[in-house]
């Protein structure tokens, strides 16, 4: 009912996470810090959804840097299967060893009477070729094997097939996997697991049930300004306020792809390179392609350009 008193209070812990992310250059809000805190404490995977470019993958990287654990990344795609995600036997090595050890095998079997006895003798060495030596670990197994724990990032889970999603369930709920020849392998230290999704398809309920769910929306102006300050320290205060206000205004338009935080950062860098001190319609028009990636969107934005720039300049 009550939190135990022998640990730091949860609020302080959440605040500390927020702080240390900020020093690591990843500016986040309370809700994200809370999610990280819960994921660590409850030892549950964290499913992160949100529009592209709001820093979903970045969050996993920052967490890895913060905890000092290795980041193991598994990029999902259609047709991803166990052999590429989990483990594979080193067939080549197995074959090579049998060739090299042929003579040894001859010695071993020497004197055996008949087929039955030979096989019985071989059985004594049954597992020689199916042990961990001959196992090629892929990302998921690597994460379970990491002695100090790891940060496992399963990126763009929505791109994988549903068979793969179902296969992940055992890993995500019990942090163990079954290999027929070896049995069940449990995690040495439970890894911190992140899954990200761009929502190109609905993720199955079974998977969602096993995860904490964090939705990262586009940041509000204040947060985005802090991000820009951390990432592009060269931008002057006034320029920063204006460019953030402009991008925020741009997101209000009916666009195919709204500019994400990563694009705001790119644009801020571009403006700093151009020695801009504040945004002007002509400058914006020339650099709009940094923010918008579709010609249709650029056309839409240009029609509104003057109004948007005027409003943004007022904000600065």
């Amino acid at each position: 009912m009550n939190q135990s008193t022998d640990q730091v209070s949860p609020l302080a812990a959440i605040g500390a996470i927020e702080q240390s992310f900020a020093t690591a250059g990843y500016i986040c809000n309370r809700s994200i810090a809370t999610a990280i805190f819960l994921a660590q404490k409850l030892e549950k995977p964290l499913l992160i959804e949100g529009p592209p470019g709001v820093g979903k993958t970045e969050l996993a990287k920052a967490t890895a840097a913060l905890t000092g654990k290795p980041l193991i990344r598994l990029q999902c795609y259609e047709g991803l299967d166990e052999a590429k995600a989990l483990y594979e036997w080193k067939y080549g090595k197995q074959l090579l060893y049998t060739q090299v050890l042929k003579e040894k095998l001859g010695d071993l079997l020497a004197g055996a009477q008949g087929l039955k006895e030979s096989i019985a003798r071989l059985h004594e060495f049954d597992d020689t070729f199916f042990n961990e030596e001959f196992l090629e670990p892929r990302p998921l197994l690597k994460a379970l094997w990491a002695p100090e724990g790891a940060v496992l990032l399963i990126d763009e889970i929505d791109k994988s097939d549903d068979e793969f999603e179902a296969f992940l369930l055992e890993l995500l709920s019990d942090f163990q996997i079954s290999i027929p020849e070896l049995g069940t392998i449990k995690a040495k230290t439970i890894p911190i697991v992140f899954l990200t999704s761009n929502n190109t398809r609905e993720i199955g309920d079974a998977l969602k049930r096993r995860c904490l769910h964090l939705f990262i929306p586009f940041p509000d102006p204040a947060l985005e300004q802090r991000i820009i300050r951390a990432r592009v320290p060269d931008a002057e205060d006034r320029l920063r306020a204006q460019l953030v206000a402009f991008v925020q205004g741009l997101r209000g338009l009916d666009l195919k792809k709204k500019p994400a935080v990563s694009e705001t950062i790119d644009w801020a860098r571009a403006l700093v390179l151009l020695h801009a001190r504040e945004i002007e319609p002509e400058l914006v028009r020339q650099t709009l392609n940094v923010l918008l990636k579709f010609q249709d969107d650029i056309d839409t934005a240009e029609a509104e350009l003057h109004a948007l720039v005027a409003r943004a300049r007022k904000a600065g």
């Binding site: 009550n2 609020l11 819960l38």
Partner: peptide
């Protein structure tokens, strides 16, 4: 049990992460 009722905003975030998906 982890976050308690001390901070309303944190409680909201935390519960929404486990309950609303």
């Amino acid at each position: 049990g982890l976050v308690g009722y001390d901070d309303r905003a944190v409680l909201h975030d935390a519960l929404s992460q486990v309950l609303a998906k």
